[in-house]
Design a protein around this nucleic acid. Structure first.
Length: 550
RNA sequence: GCGCCCGUAGCUCAACUGGACAGAGCAACGGACUUCUAAUCCGUAGGUCACAGGUUCGAAUCCUGUCGGGCGUACCA
């Protein structure tokens, strides 16, 4: 049991039995004070009760302490401070023993059961298979993967999904684009589509198809050629997307194809469902959804006047399909240019009767690549994009993932290529990894010096400030992980790891681990091992390697 | 015009969702390698939390307005 849980239980007990007994629930907030003088854990519960009890916060705090029954081994100091905070200080033995929990739980340390096995699906990247993945996809990929890891650690049953838009207009354009290039390679002219794809990769694909299949497509009718080439190009691009993501350490549980919805007319069933519920009307020859009834700005078209189902309708069917597969909570990660689209999807899902607040969209803000102090302009239309693969080749997987995850996802990100490429102290990734490698080295050195890892180390010897503050940081890990999961804020993990690594490096310089004092060496080895576990667990959540040597 | 996101140290970002004196890294300056890795550590300096009101015991955080930056506002996907 963590110290926080212990205090929470005791406070609840005091609030139910003592003179301050409360009829209603009191939401007790316990948190780690910023300043060390304020102890290890503080609560503002007295201030929250003050208006209800019509007594001063300090007065309530004092009374509360009377009915609070705490083990003096665990909590060594309690005080009422400031406007009415109650500050608790844990004893050194509490912290020393906490190390045993870390060793015991190992790779599971940091996990919690908060999610209670809730079935969650998180869908991200989902780029059209009409081109290579770009750096924005790389950011979404890192964030989605880490969010999934966090939710899993918090006890949810999470699946990662990639939605493949393998049907519709953009695929037709892809086929026409490739076809134009293919014919050009054969010396024949075919007009390039107005809104076609201009990137060099289109040419590469055309050339590859020519090499593998010769000129056999030239003899087909135009439409047949377009379709055949569209399919081949689509599958080739999809395969290369999968490859890049896999190199990135990201493997999706499901690749869901839009065509499976269209093939089974699932979008039409959804349309009927919405009609049956009275949310569809006809105007100007099109079928409209009354999304304004659910707070959207205007109603939205489901079927065009030409009789074509809109992307929106298929997308609604897709999300309905997710629910039908048994997921209780859906998350999508979208680019900032789609924010206007959120409301209408939510509206449609409510219209279909799915529970409120079970579908949420996290917007991932754009990525600004900085090279030589200047931002690199990207233009999709001109085919000038920075490919994810280029980025990974240049800076490596660990650095890329770390940089993307270290910032709040809703803030635009300046990605400094020059900084990312530096293998020096300016680069924060190595700071954390170095701490891990350093510990591995200490443990190796201890073994060489004849000190095996101790079964029962005298942990009470760990009393130095540097040692205790390192342990405090370690003990905070589970709390950090579950907060990050609950708020869907991956950036908390890099921030935490940065601080933990700092605590460790400070300890390293202040306290020699392997020394003539065998007992002390053993105790410090346990501290090192515990730190190693937490660093490794944290790096694993981020999908980064935990190097044993650097 | 309307809607969403953002504005914190010279730069890149935190601040546990309303808590106590706003913290890190980089850059600058000054120190520490005969030691378990100096990819490290110690110290100095750096702030009107964009601005103005409001809400309350208490605001970087909530509400209103203003100013800046980004994005969106299709019977496209």
């Amino acid at each position: 049991m963590t110290g926080e849980q212990y205090l929470r239980d005791k406070l609840n007990q005091a609030l139910q039995t003592g003179e301050l007994a409360q009829p209603g629930d009191v939401n007790i907030i316990l948190e780690k004070p910023k300043m060390e003088e304020h102890g290890d854990m503080a609560t503002n519960v007295a201030m929250l009760l003050a208006p209800r009890l019509r007594r001063s916060p300090r007065d309530i705090a004092t009374a509360l302490l009377q009915s609070l029954d705490l083990d003096s081994e665990i909590v060594t100091k309690i005080e009422v401070a400031g406007a009415g905070f109650i500050n608790f200080t844990f004893g050194q033995s509490y912290y020393q023993k906490a190390l045993l929990t870390i060793l015991q739980e190992g790779a599971a340390f940091g996990n919690s059961s908060w999610g209670q096995g809730k079935r969650i699906q998180i869908e991200f990247v989902s780029a059209n298979p009409t081109g290579p993945l770009n750096v924005v996809s790389a950011r979404a990929a890192a964030l989605g993967d880490v969010m999934a890891n966090l939710l899993r650690a918090a006890g949810c049953a999470v699946e990662k999904e990639y939605y493949v838009n393998d049907a519709g207009r953009q695929i037709r354009l892809l086929g026409m684009s490739v076809s134009a290039r293919y014919m050009a390679l054969l010396g024949k002219t075919e007009p390039f589509p107005e809104e076609g794809y201009h990137g060099d990769y289109i040419n590469d694909i055309a050339r590859q198809i020519l090499e593998e299949h010769g000129d056999s497509f030239a003899g087909l009718g135009t439409k047949e050629r377009w379709q055949a080439l569209a399919e081949m190009a689509r599958e080739a691009l999809l395969a290369s997307q999968k490859e890049v993501l896999s190199d990135y350490g990201l493997n999706f549980d499901t690749w869901f194809r839009e065509s499976t919805l269209r093939d089974t007319d699932e979008h039409l069933k959804v349309l009927k469902n919405l009609q049956a519920r009275g949310y569809v009307y006809e105007a100007d020859g099109a079928q409209w959804f009354r999304s304004t009834e659910f707070g959207d700005e205007k109603d939205r078209v489901l079927v065009t006047s030409e009789g074509e189902p809109t992307y929106f309708l298929v997308d609604v069917a897709y999300h309905a399909n997710k629910y039908e597969r048994g997921f209780e909570q859906l998350y999508d990660l979208w680019g900032p240019d789609h924010h206007g689209y959120i409301q209408r999807v939510k509206a449609a899902l409510l219209g279909l009767g799915y529970p409120k607040d079970t579908f949420d969209v996290k917007l991932i803000q754009q990525v600004n690549l900085i090279r030589g102090g200047e931002s690199v302009k990207m233009s999709k239309r001109a085919g000038k994009i920075i490919e994810m693969k280029e980025l990974l080749d240049e800076v490596g997987v660990d650095v890329a993932r770390y940089f993307f995850v270290a910032r709040r996802s809703q803030s635009p990100l300046d990605f400094d290529m020059d900084l990312a490429k530096k293998t020096s102290d300016e680069n924060p990734v190595y700071y954390v990894q170095y701490a891990h490698a350093r510990i591995c080295n200490i443990i190796r050195h201890a073994e060489e010096s004849g000190i095996a890892f101790p079964r029962n180390a005298p942990l009470e010897l760990l009393t130095d400030d540097a040692e205790i503050s390192l342990i405090k940081k370690l003990v905070d890990f589970p709390n950090t992980v579950s907060k990050a999961a609950q708020q869907m804020e991956p950036h908390r993990i890099p921030t935490y790891l940065q601080e933990l690594a700092g605590s460790f490096h400070r300890f390293y310089h202040h306290c020699r681990v392997v020394s003539d004092d065998r007992s002390l060496s053993e105790a410090r080895l346990v501290l090192c091992k515990s730190t190693q576990i937490v660093l490794a667990n944290g790096l694993a959540l981020l999908g980064l390697s935990a190097p044993e040597r650097m």
